[in-house]
């Protein structure tokens, strides 16, 4: 046989767009053709290293002035400094704890309210009819726009901060839960009814479990909105918190503290997202497989 007997040798070439070509056979234990399947850890580490290198390059070559972008070393130094001495007389970890409490507290509340609400909206046309307009009305408005209202109504204390974050998380979580309700195959629902299930049992044993993947995804998206809103929330009369740290440092043109704060927020958010992905793999290993 000659080489020409194997017309497929062409497809062995891998490029960055190889995922657009026909996929090759998978290893046992994986399912062929599941979109985006594969390990990404090494690439992610490489990507982070690349960004840091680029950052180091443009700053150490003097292409960008430190006032606009301090180098990685300066930011790291700032981190050590704030870690040891605190920021505006408050220990660093307290800033983290305060912001964490605001975001996760609001997130928890939003899940407690949003998930049942979304499910109820998915299950009942009555509740959907009632709650769809208000949610769709406020959802596209940036939190900064209704921040003044929050302050007028609830003062400058903790309530308006947590409420602002809560609102930004609520909409995506509720909408995710609502569309998750549609995930159950009609055969699954019919089968349950044909075994004598009540509506409540169908919801509890069929609708809810099959909505779980989408609810978890919605929670991941929701907490992202929460972090996004944190800085806005801490614009108001805050004396501690990561958002406060970033904002007040920017007023003094302490760019290294600003960048350091941003990175800390990003790392916490990313770590939590990794945790959620881990939970997802444990709780819904069947996602997309049936």
């Amino acid at each position: 046989m000659t080489e020409h007997a194997y017309p497929n040798t062409q497809s062995k070439k891998k490029g960055i767009f190889f995922f657009l070509m026909k996929a090759r056979a998978t290893k046992p234990g994986e399912t062929y053709g599941v979109p985006g399947q594969g390990d990404t850890l090494l690439l992610s580490l490489g990507s982070i290293a690349g960004i840091i290198f680029l950052w180091w390059l443009v700053t150490s070559m003097g292409w960008i002035k430190p006032l606009f972008l301090p180098g990685p070393g300066a930011v790291l130094g700032k981190f050590v400094d704030v870690w040891n001495n605190g920021f505006t007389n408050t220990p660093f970890l307290e800033h983290v704890a305060v912001s964490g409490a605001r975001v996760f507290g609001a997130f928890l509340l939003a899940c407690l309210v949003g998930i049942p609400l979304g499910i109820a909206m998915g299950m009942s046309p009555f509740i959907r009819g009632v709650f769809d307009p208000p949610i769709e009305f406020y959802r596209p408005i940036p939190p900064l726009a209704y921040l003044p209202l929050m302050i007028i109504w609830f003062g400058i204390g903790e309530t308006s901060k947590v409420l602002l974050i809560f609102l930004s998380v609520l909409a995506p979580v509720a909408l995710g839960a609502r569309s998750g309700v549609k995930s159950a195959a009609i055969e699954q629902v019919h089968a349950a009814y044909s075994f004598g299930a009540s509506r409540w049992q169908v919801m509890r044993h069929v609708i809810l479990p099959s909505a779980l993947p989408e609810i978890l995804t919605a929670m991941r998206i929701g907490i992202g909105f929460g972090w996004t809103t944190l800085v806005a929330a801490e614009m108001v009369a805050a004396t501690e918190g990561l958002g406060y740290m970033v904002l007040s440092a920017s007023q003094f043109l302490q760019t290294s503290t600003v960048i350091m704060g941003i990175i800390v927020i990003a790392i916490i958010a990313y770590a939590f997202d990794l945790l959620m992905r881990f939970v997802e793999r444990r709780v819904v290993p069947w996602k997309g497989r049936m």
Partner: peptide
Amino acid sequence: QKHALLPW
């Protein structure tokens, strides 16, 4: 015919 089992 299909889709009626509960994968969880």
